[in-house]
Design a protein around this nucleic acid. Sequence first.
DNA 1: CTAGCATATGAGAACTTAGTCATATAATAC
DNA 2: GTATTATATGACTAAGTTCTCATATGCTAG
Lengths: 132, 132
Amino acid sequence: MAQATERLQRYLEDELGACRTEDVEQRLDELSTLETALEVEQVTTELDVLSSLANETRYTLVRVLVGAQEELCVCELHAVVDVTESGLSHALSQLVDAGLVTGRKDGRWKKYRATNRAITLITVLEGSVSDE
Amino acid sequence: MAQATERLQRYLEDELGACRTEDVEQRLDELSTLETALEVEQVTTELDVLSSLANETRYTLVRVLVGAQEELCVCELHAVVDVTESGLSHALSQLVDAGLVTGRKDGRWKKYRATNRAITLITVLEGSVSDE
DNA sequence: CTAGCATATGAGAACTTAGTCATATAATAC
DNA sequence: GTATTATATGACTAAGTTCTCATATGCTAG
């Protein structure tokens, strides 16, 4: 980190014209404040949500559930993804953990529904990618 | 898929009371419509965006850039993540590819800035995770 | 209460990714 | 020009992820 700090010092000298050790300290402080603006726990949750969506199988499941606007049975979801039933189960349980879908047992069938979190995220992501 | 289709048939019988082969066909059709509602290319882009964000190093970089509301030098970004300069470069170039940040050369320094896409996504994600 | 069906879970093989070191490029200072 | 500094790229390894098969659980129909 020593070398990196020296570089930051040279950069600040370049930008500000002059730069003392305190200026570097202060800048490091500001940067660290930006980095820790969020609770570690919240960032962890956000990363879980992102990782859960960042996979073709799981993303397809969420897109379909959001599009359906109703709960769908596992056996219906099986028709839209190309994995075994076991793989489908794993995918759905990861999505439940990330708070993107909820599951409900209905007799011998199990039905899943997209959460508001999933609806919001998918909607915004699709919007941000389509109008570029 | 044959076995899966049989299950879907049993499910629809259970739900609708009756179910002919055409009903199964129609449901499969509806599901496939949901799945292909988006262009393959757009889904690919969306998955790229999600995968790029779904990593602690890259997510931190984007969060900091969004929070900073201004461009930051690579040497400043180096202070907030725990990787080598090389790793930082790799991370930033993946973020550029995903359209989440843009880079600009300024003399011997290189500065990065969050794109609107990044700002929107981070804002919505943080909102959706904090109010649960 | 047993058999069969729907879904879940665990362990492990195949693939993917993140980071590192070595090296390349490109700007500046001398 | 050459040396130095800032960042990028390529090749590789370690670690992580995503599936699959085997097996478990828990309904329900008979």
